[in-house]
Design a protein around this nucleic acid. Structure first.
Lengths: 131, 131
DNA sequence: CAGTATCCGAGACGATACTG
DNA sequence: CAGTATCGTCTCGGATACTG
């Protein structure tokens, strides 16, 4: 994803900027919680508490933190209903849904390769250098 | 990905096991370095040092650590040539290549949405509750 | 209910030095 | 060259408590 070996020419400045931005975005979303939140949202609109129940294992803190990050990058839209108690809903944006499609691919991959991976783990012997 | 609301029936034990395994595997691979290594390998066979140059930014330690993990899960095959100095080559296995396809999707997504995300970031105002 | 802030332990990560 | 081990730093991430 990242173009290496810059020549130092003027246009390279833009390339380098785009690359570091791409890396930054990639690093943002390539983490467990972000991806799980995206798949949990799917096509639905969920409240904070519903989302928390859906992702399972995620803490209050990680959920808010990742939601802010996803919102900042324009993957998730946050809607506040000014009621009391407050009702805040989250839904995927266009780019967010586009990403979800590929993340779904990862989930499918995990499911379909479960058995092979489990077997590979049994087969794997940590300290057998040269074997 | 994870099935919730187990009823407690006998077959549920298996479901729960499969789910926690899937989550474990997902957590393993859903991290920045693992995904970058996988895309870097692509269809090629690379030596440790080549891989290190390719991923850029990764430390010696993180590379070995993630390579072991990927090898353990059967995504990467490690070949040691008993020469001196040693020559160790890494290549994606079948499952590894299958996963790479979906990860490529993520990279493509990042590239095609760069501009929109950059704009979303500018638009994003951290502390504007209720707006 | 949703969100923020704080504390604190556990793990990530980089740098360095050492082996075969 | 590839790998392991160790150490120090820093971020991640959970638990808790407090606001609107």
């Amino acid at each position: 994803m990242v173009t290496k070996q810059y020549t130092g020419s003027p246009e390279d400045a833009d390339l380098r900027r785009a690359d570091s931005l791409a890396r930054e975005i990639f690093s943002d979303i390539a983490n467990k919680w972000a991806l799980l939140i995206i798949t949990a949202l799917d096509e639905r609109t969920l409240r904070f508490s519903e989302l928390r129940a859906e992702v399972d294992g995620i803490s209050h803190k990680m959920l808010t933190q990742n939601l802010r990050m996803l919102e900042r990058n324009g993957l998730v839209e946050r809607t506040v209903h000014p009621t009391v108690p407050p009702r805040v809903e989250y839904t995927l944006t266009g780019p967010g849904r586009a990403l979800r499609a590929t993340v779904d691919g990862m989930c499918d991959w995990t499911r379909t390769h479960l058995a092979r991976i489990e077997e590979a783990r049994r087969r794997f012997t940590p300290g057998t250098p040269g074997t």
